[in-house]
């Protein structure tokens, strides 16, 4: 394989990393906007939606071209395979950021209930998982994804507790139904984002070692 291919592969990885961190910023900002009820910040997240899609299409196209023109094998092939998965997961994460930002607009002006339950904590945990998964992709350091299974379990437990707590509040006071339902939805989005972080981690493991793992 030529030096040109390897430099294009490097560029691809940089592009995918940029897209992934862009998606990460969408989710991070949507969480900030939710916690601080910052409608203006939520609007900027929504505005980033088209950009993430464009990045996805361009980067996927680059992957397909690299495959078609160079028939990569071994690690080169695994980098492209992993990058395609990171692109897909990042696009989902970005879109969950956008969906959360839309909820911020829906519930604007209504005060938080029950101090948002465990949502800020859950948000912190999920963002940390995505941060580590993307850092592992960038640096090829698998230590970052050690213990992802236990971290994912903690996220699932938090989602479940937010669900139970929200139901309790709704039963006690029907006026909280709208707010509490959105809390359940956001907890669900966060849980899905943690799953995407796990998928990224699984694929980084494959990229680095060729070994398939399942983070349950």
């Amino acid at each position: 394989m030529t030096d040109k291919f390897h430099s294009e592969l490097k560029e691809l990885k940089k592009g995918v990393s940029d897209m992934a961190w862009f998606a990460f910023s969408m989710l991070t900002d949507s969480q900030k906007a939710f916690i601080n009820q910052d409608e203006a910040l939520a609007a900027t997240v929504i505005a980033r939606k088209d950009q993430i899609r464009e990045q996805m299409v361009t980067l996927e196209e680059t992957c397909y071209q690299l495959i078609a023109l160079n028939q990569p094998v071994a690690k080169d092939m695994r980098v492209i395979a992993c990058s395609l998965k990171v692109i897909a997961a990042s696009e989902r994460i970005g879109r969950y950021g956008k969906s959360t930002a839309k909820i911020v607009k829906e519930i604007a002006g209504k005060p938080h209930i029950a101090n948002m339950m465990s949502l800020p904590l859950m948000s912190e945990y999920v963002l940390a998982m995505i941060d580590d998964a993307l850092t592992a992709y960038d640096t090829e350091n698998l230590r970052k994804i050690d213990g992802f299974s236990a971290r994912d379990d903690a996220i699932d437990a938090l989602r479940h507790s937010i669900f139970r707590e929200s139901i309790t509040y709704m039963m006690e006071n029907p006026k909280t139904i709208t707010q509490a339902t959105y809390y359940i939805i956001i907890a669900r989005y966060l849980e899905r984002c943690a799953d995407h972080a796990c998928k990224i981690a699984e694929n980084v493991q494959y990229m680095e070692t060729g070994e398939r793992i399942e983070i349950k």
Partner: peptide, 10 residues
């Protein structure tokens, strides 16, 4: 071709 064990092969 997917994941050779030796660096030299890779």
């Amino acid at each position: 071709f997917e994941h050779p064990k030796q660096d030299l092969t890779e």
